[in-house]
Design a protein around this nucleic acid. Sequence first.
DNA 1: TATTGTTATACTCTATAACTATA
DNA 2: TATAGTTATAGAGTATAACAATA
Lengths: 183, 183
Amino acid sequence: MAAQSRYVEVAQHITALGAVKRALTRTLPAECPSGSAHVLSLLNAHGEMRMSRLSELLGIDTSVTSRHVAHAAQRGWLERLPDPADGRSRLLRLTPAGRDLIDSLGDRAVAMIARKLADWSDAELDALTTMLGRLRADFGDCRIPGPRDDGPPAPGSSGTAGSTGAHEAAGPLLPRTPTPSHA
Amino acid sequence: MAAQSRYVEVAQHITALGAVKRALTRTLPAECPSGSAHVLSLLNAHGEMRMSRLSELLGIDTSVTSRHVAHAAQRGWLERLPDPADGRSRLLRLTPAGRDLIDSLGDRAVAMIARKLADWSDAELDALTTMLGRLRADFGDCRIPGPRDDGPPAPGSSGTAGSTGAHEAAGPLLPRTPTPSHA
DNA sequence: TATTGTTATACTCTATAACTATA
DNA sequence: TATAGTTATAGAGTATAACAATA
């Protein structure tokens, strides 16, 4: 356990990194919003998968994933095939068009990063990705914590968390603030 | 200049870190949205400042900053004082209530991070914050790139660029994708 | 009854443009 | 004319809830 100030800094950096993410997003063409790009990128990196798995990798709710996937499917960037093992499930597969698109998107993003991070050595970049990878892994599946508070305190239970995560789920997050009405 | 794959990894991590950011956001009380929390956090860390400066630190447009600040001001978390040096400008100052709030928010976020990153040593956390600081510094001011591209990144960028500050604006980003009508 | 995925609804964040008031 | 800040409008992302089909 380190000093609080160190954690505060981590929090500030993570929050502020949103600006960098938006800058990356601006390199995308208008027809391909950030959500679609992320979907295609993951399919390209991990191959065919189900909605639930993709949702897990994206770290967002399945309903949102469904929207992004539908958008990409309408554009012809991916296919939703029936899952022979489970009639409820659908397998997502990148189409050649989708692969071409993700390649061009990658080029743009990479060009920007390469320019900004031109001074970083290979070792430094490796250290960065290693740390970010560990950071993400330690946070685990960041989707809805689970301790739905029906009103009063009701902490305790929870126990939800990631059955699915990149690894085992860490403890449940803090309760969603039982609607304090001060301030 | 490193291999493309390294940059791709960096891009994927930055994008995926959005999920971690949302997890942190969920620790906030309903009355204090993420935007307000970020504003208060920066005022707490850097002290009194003008709108334009805050906007720069947030990495967002001044119009958005204005909204967040107005929200926080209405809640009594900060004051907008006239700037004796420039009648058009306003100085933002945290109120005692705002300071109390940011402290409590920090506690929540820190509690979560401390739990998730319990295995990290002080040195590792330092390495992480140092790298993230440098990453942000090298990306510079990520707000609207402006139509022109001045070319390569500013020469002296690398350094370790310390903490939170996004530092002075850096070179413009890539052109906003000149409406490529392909794909 | 439990689970996979979809759709409808609402909220937050952000960017662009138009506008005011100072400089 | 240029700049600091505000407000109105529009687009994107996400979470919750209700629902459909299958296990």
